[in-house]
Each structure stands twice: as structure tokens, then as C-alpha cells.
Design a protein around this nucleic acid. Structure first.
Length: 453
RNA sequence: GGCCGAGUGGCAGAAUGGUCAUGCAGAGGACUGCAAAUCCUUUGACAUCGGUUCGAUUCCGGUCUCGGCCUCCA
């Protein structure tokens, strides 16, 4: 079986050949923790969680690191606005993030390093870059000199000229070149910061991922992921730092081999983002739709494509998830965890083609309803598992948070009596009443079943 | 302005140089007191103009439209 991924570095779909098949290593850029994550952030998390699950299915060991950016101007601003201590802000936000991820069936990565826990490594990296002549100090800042790295632009496919032409930002006067970026910046007294050979200050944003990926995965690893909006400048700058620190060039590098980027989540044709204000927090949506529905909705589009966020789309996803769980409800018996069917794995092997995999899931679903066998159930459930779906008990899915079960059962009893007396008018009235309560009735050979709509 | 990407049936969304995507919705049927669930059958598409080809939704070029990045961003 051949596994392929679209590699942003080469702009091509490539065969995936891990450095060490006994331990596949991946790094994904995580959130800046100053506020609740929105659904766009969730897409990235769900996509790479699915990649993680898929790799775990195929390889004996996968090491996955995803960072928390817990030192950043946005956090400092929030602290200034609210007066809340910075650690309180970051701790609280990390906890929210974990809660949201849990409801989306997103597994915890093997490592979740925080930038503030990696300061010594970052300072070391800056020192290294200065010593090797790739970085310079100016007005308390340490800046990376992009002209010293021949390969600058390998990932985002831009030339220096493009960047100068396209410049929309005012260039800080202390920069030698407009594209130079900050490795270390000064902090004022009383502001968050650390002592360093370049003065009291804090790291630039790009630095942490280079330092953390090296710390937890080594100088070379397999996959580096993130949203497409991180390609430039974030990942381009990471490449510049990390290549130069390890003394490699663009062709013979030692950093990440495969750069995988997910497409943006769109709202009315525009990217969902905090700055545009067109966002829903994950929490907002979780209150209306189960996490698995949101997850299914996200995986029904290929990760590389933009995905339009609509409530119609979520409703559609919910319909399908209800059908899936209904099938599990109807075919009794527990299923053991085993390897997913090869056709399903093959679909995912093709650049994590989740829509294709879901099409196969539908086939397995149809087959399950026809065969009604435990074997068919196993194939279905074990496929869904790789996508992080159908992980809960079907009963819980349909009845989980219903708090008036007694009333429902009583009404069903009344309806049964009415049916026995062939009083169908009354029976239908009770059914309609239950429907208004959000409960759906099914008359089956095994008796009456109920579930929430 | 520069760089990158996309345009598929009512909606969502894959693959593919010639034969069924798939799902939701719709239509007809089976089952049911009627429903629901399930099963069977079914309608319907490849932005546009050229080119290559025996044949193009699929390859190449132009046009139009849309989006992302170039500032923080998943």
C-alpha cells in the first residue's frame, strides 16, 4: 500500500516515506491561548487528529506534538484589558481548549509543549543563529536576516522581489531588509519576559515551533502541519530558522519532510477569523450540535479544500450520524477493535481522502443494514473509528441527556393501550405530542422504540 | 499589484481520457392501522471559448467568476 500526501514544499502529491517507520513523527501548530477557539481552529484540530489516527492505524508508533502559544502580544493585551494574570488567562484557555477537543473526539497529542516551558531552548537557538551570522541585533531586537538564507521562499513560492512588491506593511526602521523577522524582542520592565544574552525580552512567534519541534521530535521529522494561512510567513520563517541552525540548504535539509496544510473554513465566502468577526466559537456550536456531528461535517470535505460553514451542512451531517447510530442500535452485540477494511484504509492513504472514506463508510453502512451481521457491524464501526466517529454507545447517542424518561415511557404505554383498542386517533395524538417534546417513536417487531429527534 | 488555488446535478462532495461516485433532498414501490426505520427502483452535473485526441468533466491555452496569502491568523 502506498501512502501519499500533498506536500506544500514540492506543490505535489508525494509518496509518504517516513524517516523511521517504527516511529512516525509529526508536529502541528496549535492555538494561541487567549480566548475560546473558533470552529475554524477546530477544523485544523480535527483534520490533524484524523491524520494522527490514520497514521496510528498504519504504523506501529506515532509521536505527535502540538504546541500551545502561551506568550504573545494578544495575551498581553488581554491581560492589560482585563487585569487578569497572564498565567490565569492561559491556564483557563488551555482548559477550555481541552474540553472542546474532547467533545470533538480529538485525541490529546503525545506532547503538548508550551512556549513558556521552552524558553532556554529558544534562547539557545537565537544564539546559534547569531553566532552563525544569520541573525543580527538592532535596537534590542534580534532579527533574522533573510538575505542570508538562499532558500527563503521555498515553501510559499515567493521571491524576494514578490515580497517587496507586495509589501503592505510599514517596515520597522531597524530592519535591514523588509522581510527580516523578529527572533527576540525587548520587553519593558514589569512586562512578561526572560533574561537573555540579548537583554530582557520575549521570543518572536516563529521561534517557538522551531525550538519545540526539535526538542520533542528531533532535528528531522516527518510531517509538519497547520492551516494554509500559516504557510507565509510563519512556516516560511520556521524553515529559515531551522535550516540555518542545522546548517542545511533548501535541497538538503533536516527539518520536516512533508508540509501538510488544511484549507480554511469559510463563512459566506469569507475565511472565518477573529479579525473579521465572522466566527462561531466551538462552544457556541457544541451547544446546538453534538461534537461528532461537527467532526463528521468537517471530514466530509477533503482537508485541502476550503469548507463552507453552514447550519444546513451541520443538519445534513446530523441526519447521517443519526442513521449510522440507528444501525448500531438495531444490530445488537459488541464489536472488537480490529483493523479497518483495506479499501477504507486505501481511501485514506490517498492524501487523507476523507470524503472518499466516508463514501465507503456509507457502503459498509448499507451492507450492515442488509446483512444485519456482527461481522458487517465490525467493519463499519472499525472504519468509523479511524475517523474518530461512532465512538459512543448508540443508546447514549439517542437518549443521553433526556431527563423526562418516565414521562415518555408513560405516554408510550398509553399509546400502546390505545393501539390495542384500535383507537388510532388517540395513538396518533400521543405520537404527535411526543414529537413536540422532541421524541420520535418507532413501532418495531421488538416493540416500541423511542429516541430524541 | 505579486504569489498560490478553485469553479461538478436543488445542496454537499469524490474519482476519472471512453463504462455507477457517494450522501442529503426529490419521485415511484415494498413493509406499516398510519407513520418511523429499513429495503428496491429512479430523475439529475461537470463555468466559458478554443486546441490536442477516434473520443475530454478529466490534458493544454485564453476568458470570466470566486477564494487564500502578501499584517495577527488554523
Amino acid at each position: 500500500m502506498t501512502i501519499t500526501f500533498y506536500n506544500t514544499l514540492s506543490s505535489k502529491k508525494e509518496e509518504f516515506l517516513p524517516i523511521n517507520p517504527e516511529n512516525v513523527r509529526m508536529y502541528v501548530c496549535g492555538p494561541t491561548v487567549y480566548d475560546r477557539a473558533h470552529v475554524g481552529n477546530a477544523r485544523s484540530a480535527v483534520v490533524f487528529d484524523s491524520l494522527y489516527r490514520f497514521l496510528k492505524e498504519v504504523f506501529p508508533k506515532v509521536t505527535f506534538a502540538r504546541n500551545f502559544t502561551d506568550v504573545d502580544d494578544k495575551i498581553i493585551n488581554k491581560h492589560k484589558q482585563t487585569g487578569k494574570p497572564i498565567t490565569e488567562i492561559t491556564e483557563e484557555t488551555i482548559q477550555w481548549f481541552h474540553e472542546d477537543m474532547d467533545t470533538l473526539n480529538v485525541l490529546r497529542p503525545d506532547f503538548e509543549p508550551r512556549a513558556t516551558e521552552t524558553i532556554p531552548e529558544m534562547i539557545e537557538l537565537v544564539k546559534d543563529l547569531v553566532d552563525k551570522g544569520f541573525a543580527y541585533e538592532a535596537e534590542g531586537h534580534v532579527l533574522f536576516d533573510v538575505t542570508k538564507f538562499q532558500g527563503y521562499g521555498v515553501l510559499s513560492k515567493r521571491s524576494m522581489e514578490d515580497m517587496i512588491e507586495g509589501a503592505r506593511v510599514e517596515v520597522a526602521p531597524y530592519k535591514k531588509n523588509p522581510a527580516d523577522f523578529v527572533l527576540w524582542k525587548p520587553s519593558n520592565e514589569g512586562e512578561v519576559g526572560w533574561d537573555s544574552p540579548f537583554g530582557y525580552g520575549r521570543p518572536g512567534w516563529h521561534l517557538e515551533c522551531s525550538a519545540m519541534s526539535k526538542k520533542y521530535l528531533g532535528e528531522s521529522f516527518d510531517i509538519h502541519g497547520g492551516g494554509q494561512d500559516l504557510i507565509f510567513p510563519h512556516h516560511e520563517n520556521e524553515i529559515a530558522q531551522s535550516y540555518c541552525a542545522c546548517g542545511c540548504d533548501a535541497k538538503h535539509h533536516k527539518y520536516a519532510n512533508y508540509w501538510v496544510h488544511n484549507g480554511m473554513l469559510m463563512v459566506d465566502g469569507k475565511k472565518m477569523s477573529k479579525s473579521l468577526g465572522n466566527f462561531y466559537s466551538i462552544r457556541d456550536i457544541i451547544n446546538k450540535y453534538p461534537g461528532e456531528v461537527i467532526r463528521f461535517f468537517m471530514l466530509s470535505t477533503h482537508y485541502h479544500q476550503p469548507l463552507n460553514f453552514t447550519f444546513e451542512g451541520l443538519d445534513n451531517a446530523k441526519t447521517v450520524m443519526n442513521k449510522f447510530y440507528n444501525a448500531l442500535l438495531n444490530i445488537k452485540g459488541e464489536v472488537k477493535q480490529e483493523q479497518a477494511p483495506s479499501e477504507f484504509i486505501e481511501a485514506l492513504s490517498d492524501d487523507l481522502n476523507t470524503p472518499k472514506a466516508i463514501a465507503i463508510l456509507h457502503e459498509l453502512f448499507n451492507n450492515l443494514n442488509k446483512e444485519q451481521s456482527l461481522e458487517a457491524k465490525s467493519k463499519f464501526v472499525n472504519s468509523a473509528r479511524v475517523l474518530g466517529l461512532l465512538l459512543q454507545d448508540a443508546e447514549t447517542w439517542f437518549k443521553g441527556d433526556v431527563d423526562n424518561e418516565g414521562e415518555i415511557v408513560a405516554l408510550i404505554g398509553e399509546r400502546n393501550d390505545a393501539k390495542k383498542n384500535k383507537d388510532y386517533k388517540k395513538a396518533d395524538e400521543i405520537r404527535a405530542k411526543l414529537f413536540e417534546m422532541g421524541i420520535i417513536i418507532e413501532d418495531t417487531k421488538e416493540g416500541v422504540k423511542w429516541k430524541k429527534a
